[in-house]
């Protein structure tokens, strides 16, 4: 039965270990999927529903009816009468343990019944306003715009600067080349958490505190990116570069017209990573950004949660908005991402 611990099986019979393997995989899938699915479902519930317990598995809302002679729509209830028969009623008002209801078919007659006899009728309902409301109420569009700005600008700069450095490191011999490469790689060993205090001082010194550029500039140079691109550029034949040099191309033109286009696959991998990194960044923007109009999505989202009155219906909707781009990127580029991680060991 331990056979499944050893290797990829040959095709053929389906034994106990296969059942265990499939069981583990499917159980794991549920463990991954359920909390996320629950957040997505909950993000479509009304405020009243989200605070009701026990929770319903589908988003619902109270069923209502418009009755002649009543200004507002009335909520629908089922009344279980003492003899066991049921009747659908609309609720007018509730005072203590008794409620005033009417029969929708005879709107003129109102009567009082004990609350205990009533059960509310709910229907399937998706509360899309959870998504539209925070856009107006919490400046969420601003956060979204800031995040997109940071992500796009930082990614473009990362691709450009890292590929330039990688070009120098892979296609030239010059004094200090190995030392510089070692220095760049050594920055992999220095996590942000160790240098966050002085890094913030540098930001203050450059007058970039509470500025999106402060978030962008410090993340542009990545050792991972330089390393990834350098390894790829080493596979481009030197002949091509010399041919371009003979063709009277300037060094920058060689970089721009020959090397960069040929690096497209590696650039794509780095671009995917960079977008995900910058989109998800939390600690550094948390340190650099202080005023709400500069918040990124992640900071905005976490600040919503800290507010006095936690409005989960909005928070969850915005959480879904935040995880959506990454999910879409992953859906389409899943193969490149997992292979990129497996081969380079970077995240």
């Amino acid at each position: 039965m331990i056979a499944f611990l050893t290797r990829t099986r040959h095709a053929g019979r389906f034994d106990l270990t296969d059942w265990l393997a499939w069981g583990w995989a499917i159980l794991g899938t549920l463990v991954v999927a359920i909390p996320i699915a629950w957040a997505v479902i909950s993000s479509l519930k009304t405020e009243a529903e989200i605070n009701s317990f026990p929770p319903a598995l589908v988003p619902r809302a109270a069923q209502t009816i418009t009755v002649d002679g009543q200004a507002k729509p009335l909520s629908m209830w089922v009344r279980t009468m003492p003899d066991g028969s049921e009747q659908t009623v609309a609720l007018l008002r509730r005072i203590g343990l008794s409620a005033t209801v009417l029969d929708p078919s005879k709107p003129e007659e109102t009567f009082r019944v004990p609350v205990a006899e009533l059960r509310q009728l709910k229907e399937f309902h998706l509360q899309w306003s959870n998504y539209s409301e925070p856009m107006k109420q919490f400046n969420f569009l601003r956060y979204l715009w800031n995040t997109v700005f940071v992500t796009v600008v930082a990614t473009v700069l990362t691709l450009l600067l890292n590929s330039m450095a990688a070009f120098a490191l892979s296609k030239y011999r010059f004094a200090g080349r190995n030392a510089m490469f070692a220095l760049i790689l050594s920055t992999m060993m220095i996590p942000l958490s160790v240098i966050m205090v002085p890094a913030f001082m540098v930001i203050v010194g450059l007058n970039l505190a509470d500025n999106l550029w402060g978030v962008i500039l410090s993340t542009v140079s990545t050792p991972t990116g330089v390393f990834l691109l350098r390894q790829y550029m080493l596979t481009i034949p030197d002949d091509l570069i010399e041919a371009a040099r003979v063709d009277a191309a300037s060094e920058f033109r060689i970089y721009w017209r020959i090397v960069l286009p040929l690096c497209a696959p590696a650039l794509a991998v780095l671009a995917i990573f960079s977008v995900i990194w910058r989109w998800n960044d939390f600690l550094w923007p948390l340190i650099v950004l202080s005023s709400p109009e500069n918040y990124t999505l992640q900071i905005g989202l976490s600040s919503l949660q800290g507010q006095f009155n936690v409005q989960w219906h909005y928070i969850l909707a915005m959480t879904v908005v935040t995880l959506l781009p990454v999910t879409v990127v992953f859906l389409f580029l899943q193969k490149y991402i997992t292979e990129g991680v497996a081969s380079s060991g970077v995240k």
């Binding site: 794991g28 899938t29 991954v32 999927a33 909390p35 996320i36 629950w38 957040a39 909950s42 995900i276 989109w279 998800n280 960044d281 939390f282 992640q298 989202l301 976490s302 949660q305 989960w312 928070i315 969850l316 959480t319 935040t322 995880l323 990454v326 999910t327 990127v329 992953f330 991402i337 997992t338 991680v341 995240k347």
Partner: peptide, 19 residues
């Protein structure tokens, strides 16, 4: 499926589980 959570942001993960 198993790799997917890795790509989520810490904030998103924290909120999903808090909920």
């Amino acid at each position: 499926v198993f790799f997917y959570p890795v790509l989520l942001s810490p904030v998103v993960v924290g909120l999903i589980w808090q909920w």
